[in-house]
Design a protein around this nucleic acid. Structure first.
Lengths: 250, 250
DNA sequence: CGCCAATTTGACTGACTTCAACTTGCGTGG
DNA sequence: CCACGCAAGTTGAAGTCAGTCAAATTGGCG
């Protein structure tokens, strides 16, 4: 486990309820960052801005980062949360395509882009890992689009909570405890809702005994099956594809 | 231009109003597909299903394909439309992550995955092109998420129409003519709306003299500036990032 | 212990959806 | 070539989920 090789990872994992492994294990890239002193970010502090050049590739050691896109009038969408073990930068090309801000206090290490590119160019393994990582970013953005475009507030939040639970590694039936590292507004901006709707929906889920909330940031997922049913992953269809006209009624 | 080297591309470009170049020019990959006889798909026909193995990489020669994700109850989201010159398969890894169906009659050529992988492994140029393509898929999925989560019906459709106009290569001020290759239901399922809302919003835009609709599939974009204002690309913010608490009021 | 931002709850509004009827125009076959 | 049939699209009326505005509550932090 990478956590063993770097205490910071395990530390945050405990404090925020986010355990490794993260979806794109740092393992294949971790050695590139060895020996570089970590940089600290305060909660809310910015790391990079949309449109600015990508000078470094960062490995998040502790804390949580949000990747945000702003509209001119201030509306914003958090496209994804970035957790310890995640690498940021390579998916953006030469320019950042979104703004990066720390959600919690965070620590990360920066690797100059040239060194990163050189390492990637020289290693088929790293290349494959990078491909996989990019595919994963694309896939989760598309799954996110399904949520945003076609699922209700309750379904979106069920999916959100299960996503966090998956990071903790808990997939079991029984109550799973999680800690939310971000506030309600961030959750709302990630799920395409308002903060009030997030609150009300959590309250409703609590009444239905799907979850239990303690001190705002702590939750128990009481009924994983029901939550999974709500989150409802996309469903492959058997047989030949529906013709265009029957698309709505399955 | 690739269109010159393969008449099919130009043909569809004319019929559907979709001119090359597409966002990921086929150019770097085109030679891999040289000499393979194209396969025809009827409108509505399926090409691949979510969860099935990716056996071939396809180059679309003519027509339009939709990439769809279904929920269990039949709700669906079209994550993207795939146009002539686009390559499908590499972004999915070993398994398709969405279902592919022809929107219009289409023709495409299939390259066995092993040959594709071999070609990519052997060419730094192709590798870079593939990286760029994957980044583009991820980026457009994230921009799409902003639309779905934070923009109104009118804004979403303005962005949709401008996206089609961009393919035709027309960016000017004056009226731009486009042809929509897909029906209202497909537009709705791509923009997270209902077909009725798409209709009503087109009608409203027509009353505002932003567009003119002729025979359902043909449109003139009369006021590109106004449409661009509605579509409102994401806005980089200057200065240091907003702290978490001021996020909503800019 | 007290301050204050974050969160929760309440009342009301509105954008988009739903259900339903009507219209258009493409494609087919006489 | 034209009429017919029917799916695709449009419009209308009513409903609903989530948004907005506002007030009350909570709990982290100094």
């Amino acid at each position: 486990m990478y956590a063993l090789s770097h205490p910071l990872l395990l530390d945050t994992a405990l404090r925020t309820g986010i355990a490794l492994p993260s979806p794109y294990p740092a393992k294949p890239f971790a050695h590139l960052f060895a020996g570089i002193p970590p940089r600290a970010l305060a909660a809310g502090e910015g790391l990079a801005w949309e449109g600015s050049p990508v000078e470094n590739v960062h490995l998040v050691m502790s804390g949580v980062i949000r990747s945000v896109r702003y509209l001119r009038d201030g509306r914003r969408m958090i496209t994804r949360f970035i957790y310890p073990g995640d690498v940021v930068g390579p998916a953006d090309g030469a320019m950042y395509r979104s703004t990066l801000e720390a959600v919690t206090r965070a620590q990360l290490v920066a690797l100059p882009r040239a060194r990163w590119d050189h390492a990637i160019a020289g290693s088929p393994e790293l290349r494959d890992a990078l491909f996989a990582m990019l595919r994963d970013v694309a896939d989760s953005a598309q799954r996110h689009a399904v949520l945003l475009g076609r699922q209700t507030a309750e379904e979106r939040l069920a999916a959100f909570l299960l996503g966090i639970a998956r990071r903790v590694g808990e997939g079991g039936k029984g109550p799973v405890q999680i800690v939310l590292p971000m506030g309600r507004q961030d959750i709302a901006d990630h799920m395409g809702l308002t903060l009030e709707t997030v609150c009300r929906t959590f309250t409703a889920c609590q009444r239905l005994r799907l979850i239990r909330v303690w001190r705002r940031r702590h939750m128990w997922l009481l009924d994983m099956d029901a939550l999974a049913g709500l989150a409802g992953a996309t469903a492959p269809r058997d047989g030949r594809g529906a013709s265009q006209r029957t698309a709505r009624c399955v």
